[in-house]
Design a protein around this nucleic acid. Structure first.
Lengths: 236, 236
DNA sequence: CGACTGCTTGATGTTGCTCAACGTGCGTGG
DNA sequence: CCACGCACGTTGAGCAACATCAAGCAGTCG
C-alpha cells in the first residue's frame, strides 16, 4: 500500500526549480544544477505512522524532509530506542549514505510528511562542484551534531521526571510553539524517547497532572505551570 | 605555563607539505593549498592532563589531533560528563567552529598529544574550492555521528556493569589493541564517562576482579575472560 | 609527620523497573 | 451484531539496581 502510494507520487513531475521549500543548501544551486536535481529526485507523501526509511536496508538516497514531523528510532541490542524527533526542513541519512551504505536507523512519520528522495551520487556531485552547497551541508550536520550532544547529555544525567519535563517543553517550544498541543506520539513512544518504561511515563504524567503542572486529556497537553516545569527540567 | 609552551611551539616552523600524518582530507590538498595551510596552522604538543580547548571559550580554529589520546567532556547542568575518548588522527571542533562560535565542550589530553590548530577561514576556503576536501570532511563527520549514536544508545540502555564492560573492551580493542593495558584515566573519569558514580565504578571493577574476568593492579588492566566480558557488554 | 588525593568498602535510602491486574477503544472475523 | 484479540493507558505492590553517606586505607608530597 505504501509502495503503491510511492509509485503514484513518483509519477508526478517534481519541479525543484520552483519548489518553495528549498533547503539552505539547495538555495545555492544554479539553474542547471537544479535541473539535474529535478531528474534525480522523487517526492513522496507519507501519512502519520508510515515508515519512511528502514534500519538495515540499503540506502542509495539522501532524504530531505520538506514538511512534517518524523521520529528517528533504532532497534538497539536491548530494545527499541527513539533517538530524536525532527521537524522539517532537514536532511536525513547523510551519515548513513556517505559513511555506510546501510541505514543505521529507521524513520517514521508521526505527522503527515512530504519527503524528497535524492540520489546520493547527485548529492555528492553537488558537494564536489559547488563549494557553497558543501558548506551549507556541513553547517547542517554541525547543527545536528550539537543537538544530538545536548539530547544525549540531558538524558544521561537527569532522572525520569526531568526527562519527561524536557520532552514536554521540547514539543511546546521547538515543535508547536504553543503551550497547548496534541502529543503526536503514544506513551510507549514517549517512554522509548527517554529510555524509561511505559508505566513510568504514565505515572509521571499523572503526577504532573495532580500537581497542576500540566492539564492532560488523552494526548492533549496544556502547560499550566511552565516555570515549575522548567525548573524540574533543569534540576533533573 | 601552557601558554609558554604554546609560544615555544608556535615558533617552530611547521611543514604541512612533508607532514607524515596528514588527514584523509589534507591528502586531497594541492601543493599551493598546503602552502596556505602551512601559514595558518600552529602545531602544539600537550602533555597528559593539559587542557586543549575549553568549553564556552571562543573558537576560531579547527583542531586536528595528530597523535595522542583526548577526552571530550562537557560541564552539564548537573555535573561533569565525559562524552567520549578519541584517538588520533581526527578533527575536533568542526561543529563548534562552523555552527556556533563558542566551543560546546572541553578537550583534555589524557596522553601526550600533538595538535594542529587550523584557522577556520582557511578551512572554509578549502571546502569552498576543493570538492574532494569537502567530501572527506563530510565523511569524517558522518563517521563521528554514527559513533556518537552508538555510544549514546549503549549508554542509555545498558546498566552499569554493561557500560563498564563496554568501556574496558573499547580501550582494549579501539585504543590499545591489546588485552593488557594501562588505563589512562582515573576511576572518577571512568565513572563520568559512563554516567555513574565513582563508588559504583570501583565496586564493579572489584567484582570483575573477583570473578576472574579482569586482572587489576592499580590502573593496569588485564582481560582474563574476554568471552564473558563481551557477553556482559552485550546483555547489558 | 600531617594533609591530601585517589581508591575501596559497607550501610542505608531512593528511584525506577518488573509483574500483574484491569479498563478502553479499535479492527477482524465469525 | 457480538466475540475476540490486540495495542494503549493506568494503577498498585514488591524488588533490584544505584546513589548517597560515612568511614577507612594506601600512597604522595610538602
Amino acid at each position: 500500500m505504501i509502495l503503491l502510494r510511492l509509485e503514484e507520487q513518483n509519477m508526478e513531475k517534481v519541479s525543484c526549480k520552483f519548489c518553495k521549500l528549498k533547503s539552505a543548501a539547495a538555495l545555492t544551486l544554479k539553474n542547471n544544477e537544479l535541473s539535474v536535481l529535478e531528474n534525480n529526485c522523487a517526492q513522496v507523501i507519507f501519512l502519520k505512522g508510515d515508515n519512511i526509511i528502514r534500519q538495515d536496508a540499503l540506502s542509495t538516497n539522501v532524504v530531505y524532509i520538506k514538511t512534517g514531523l518524523v521520529k528517528i528510532h533504532i532497534k538497539g541490542p536491548i530494545k527499541e530506542r527513539i533517538m530524536k524527533i525532527v521537524k522539517a526542513p532537514t536532511y536525513l541519512c547523510l551519515p548513513s549514505s556517505f559513511g555506510a551504505k546501510i541505514n543505521h536507523f529507521s524513520a517514521t512519520a508521526i505527522e503527515d510528511t512530504s519527503v524528497c528522495f535524492i540520489d546520493v551520487n547527485v548529492f555528492k556531485q553537488f558537494i564536489y562542484t559547488n563549494g557553497d552547497f558543501a558548506l551549507q551541508i556541513i553547517l547542517d550536520m554541525s547543527r545536528g551534531e550539537l543537538q544530538n550532544l545536548h539530547h544525549c547529555l540531558n538524558n544521561a544525567q537527569k532522572q525520569n521526571i526531568g526527562r519527561i519535563a524536557d520532552t514536554i517543553l521540547f514539543f511546546a517550544h521547538e515543535i508547536y510553539n504553543s503551550n497547548i498541543f496534541e502529543l503526536p506520539i503514544s506513551r510507549q513512544d514517549l517512554a522509548d524517547l527517554n529510555g524509561i518504561t511505559r508505566e513510568g511515563t504514565s505515572r509521571i504524567l499523572t503526577d504532573f497532572h495532580n500537581e497542576k503542572i500540566l492539564g492532560i486529556n488523552g494526548r492533549k497537553i496544556t502547560i499550566l505551570n511552565e516555570a515549575l516545569l522548567r525548573q524540574i527540567s533543569v534540576k533533573g
